[in-house]
Amino acid sequence: MIVADLPEKELARRLAGAGLRVRTGPVVTEIRSRMPKVAQGIALHYADHPLEEPGGFADFHVRLAPPRNIRRWLQPQVTFQFDGAPPFLPLPADQAFPILEWGLNWCVSAHCHQYLVLHAAVVERSGRALILPAPPGSGKSTLCAGLVSRGWRLLSDELALIDPLTAHIMPLPRPISLKNASIEVIRRFSPDAVLGPTVRDTLKGSVAHVKAPVDSVRRAAEPARPRWIVMPRYQAGAPANLERLPKGRAFMQLVDSAFNYNLHGRKGFETLAQVIDAADCYEFAYGDLEEAVKLYDRLATSA
């Protein structure tokens, strides 16, 4: 059963009651909320995701609810709760779906230590993964959304889960988070992409999410082997330029982008070394998404 199989009322009933247990890749999350924006966001963005039976195991138990403070009467707010406690400050209520997404990212990055977790987007073609580690503002998610709209499989927009046993990457297909100008870029670039509403005035500016393609969700148990590591950098007006990055520098950038590298100790070092050994490493500047996507299509074809 997938989320889309539930009638709207049943979806709302589960969210308001015992919780909706949604599988995203290797992770099951029990989500509870009475807030309509949460139900609407899940119905749109998680429609193709498998549902686990109520009462079964869940890795994370989260709840989105108005905080119990006086401000809720003046300006409605929402808190993200993890095991009953809020790890973050409340946000305006219209940010309920973005805070769910940010909260789910936090759940995985702070707890899924069976994986080496990198802050990176990952897409795949022919079993080979393109890893895009980059800080916010680098154009990582825009590039990721552009590639996914042209047939690359989405493993994750935000978190690369590397299995230390195989050095392969486990998919975690969830909505792609776009910010500010990227929202319009993707609307124009991919008119068929399913975008949720734009939420304005968040801590990250305006935010909108792109639904993960159904094929990416269905293949969420299918890992990919690292093949390319690319550090993207959006630069207005710049021609697409892919330059080799020495592997030692690429290694250090992966260390910097990892959430739990130190926790894995020696194994973390060895796992990253395996990833680097298996991949060609590049720095990539781009100013035009169409040109960038064509370049990656050529890269995938020639390799």
Partner: peptide
């Protein structure tokens, strides 16, 4: 110490400090 030579450079992890250096 654990290290790996990559493109002529050496990445090295020091288990005592937990630090990795290029």
């Amino acid at each position: 110490l654990i290290w790996r030579e990559l493109d002529g450079d050496l990445v090295v992890r020091d288990a005592r400090s937990g630090s990795t250096h290029l």
